[in-house]
Nucleic acid binder design. Sequence first.
DNA 1: CCCCAGGTGAATA
DNA 2: TATTCACATGGG
Length: 285
Amino acid sequence: MTERILLERDEPLDLDATLGCGQAFRWQKLSGWWEGVVGGRAIRLRLEGHRLECRGADREFVRQYLALDHDLEAILSSIDRDAVVHAAIEVSYGLRILRQPLFECLISYLCATNTNIPAVRHRVAELSARFGERVACGDPVAYAFPSPAALAAATDEDFRACRLGYRSGFAERVVAALREDPSWEDRLRALSYEEARVALTALPGIGPKAADCIALFGLGHLEAFPVDLWIRRIMSRHYFDGSEQKALTPAEYERVRRMGISHFGPFAGYAQEYLYAARRSLSPD
DNA sequence: CCCCAGGTGAATA
DNA sequence: TATTCACATGGG
């Protein structure tokens, strides 16, 4: 059964940019439909003009996940403060910051350090296939991202089999920590952005970059401004006359993050994601 | 074979 | 506090 969401004029959505920009790792587009698994549901989405067609989840779930309630026009005009981000907004107009399930987001970005996006997708798919529950209505077989309890059964060897490499020990320890403190997620959700990134960086394998991604995509702190090598390069080239260093030291990370937040304001995370989506054209070579 | 990628933690000075 | 290094893996 297919549900339909009619988008209003003031509800812009670019589904390709939103699901393909690299913020979430479980989506692929097959013969016109985006297919993914979110919160135990195998979902298919297709956008035709102003009509969003959904299978596998009801309207409210999809509206919530895609954050259709974000006032995107207001958000984009608030971050549209210079020619560089303006061009990025024009290219990906309608890209939305998803509301990702927190635990999946946490483990996904633990898997996303010092690597590339296809490898992260592979790792998350392996974790789901080996430890997640089979999703009933998946046409090709689909697996939910595993719960903390399900992943607690995973050993260091299991994580290595899922191609996490040296991150395996970090993953094992994070899962164990959450298992020993079941209310941790709820307490995390109650924290401010700055408090949350302190709590997140206390976890093994989670540094400032992963913490900012989890704050942005998993906790909805839209002012979070994750700084990876691409963003660092873009900010250095277009926003301050930067000497291109190789290493991104903690002090340098903090400097770029602060600059992003102060320049773009309370929705700096949106600016970050539009710049990231435009990284190939904004960054030389 | 090389270098790079949505970095992080430990060791060292 | 700042610098340096190792680390598993996949893409180009």
